[in-house]
Amino acid sequence: MSIWVSNETRLLVQGITGTEGRFHALGCRDYGTEVVAGVTPGKGGQDVEGIPVFDSVSEARTETGCNATMIFVPPPFAADAVMEAADAGIELIVCITEGIPVNDMLKVRAFMDDSDSRLVGPNCPGVITPGQAKIGIMPGHIHTPGNVGVVSRSGTLTYEAVWQLSNVGLGQSSCVGIGGDPINGTNFIDVLSAFAADDETDGVVMIGEIGGTAEEEAAAWIQAERDAGRFDKPVVGFVAGRTAPPGRRMGHAGAIVAGGKGGAEDKMRTMRECGLHVVESPGEMGATMAKALG
């Protein structure tokens, strides 16, 4: 199985004629993803290495039957691109763009309240199901197919986790980067519930960072599901940023300790109290999962 991305995925790339969009559209295709269309308004009729470009998402949807999209549109226009994809009924929307204003994301969330589409990101590396398909900018070849799910707010720290897992002989079912922005589409709990329901996921690595309360909410959810007998997979957790000074944004727009809230220590404590295997060192994610899975 795996979650959300598979060899059934038919991928659209919004912003495909830009440098990044083109590079990663081809990267996804090289990995094995079926990339069926691109969209850049005003450039319909062109093609990128054989991938047809359309003016609008609905046109691309009608013509190619794409069921997922990867967005590289620049920040001022990215929110519109997400809403256009949702309006066209694209099932999975992965927004890579970094730097979208918070107020634009609030608009996106309101627009998507009645939508069946799932948004992953923004400001994320994307989603990969090793051996099948990837939607995103992650290096595909470090991944190996297997049974550990990964969910993370950070890009390179996810690659680090994947690398460590692969090195201890643990492959991955799917890896989902939910992004480093304060307002995003998919949160930890969404991904954890999908992993809980996935027969091929035996354990989950969850990587959080400072800012907000998403880690605490996810930890409480895990405990509640476990108590209800619905979730018995081990979860290895790490939270980046325990050395971050309060009030400063650590690279990611969402990574900030504000008003004494959102600190790494509090998050790690809550995660530990809720039964997660919390690692103190980010160098121990893979080994700890190996131990947890016995």
Binding site: S154, E160, I207, F238, G241, R242, G251, H252, A264, S281
Partner: peptide
């Protein structure tokens, strides 16, 4: 990467 950068400070 921001996440790995924070992780490095932490370690």
């Amino acid at each position: 990467g921001a996440g790995l950068a924070m992780g490095t400070m932490d370690i």
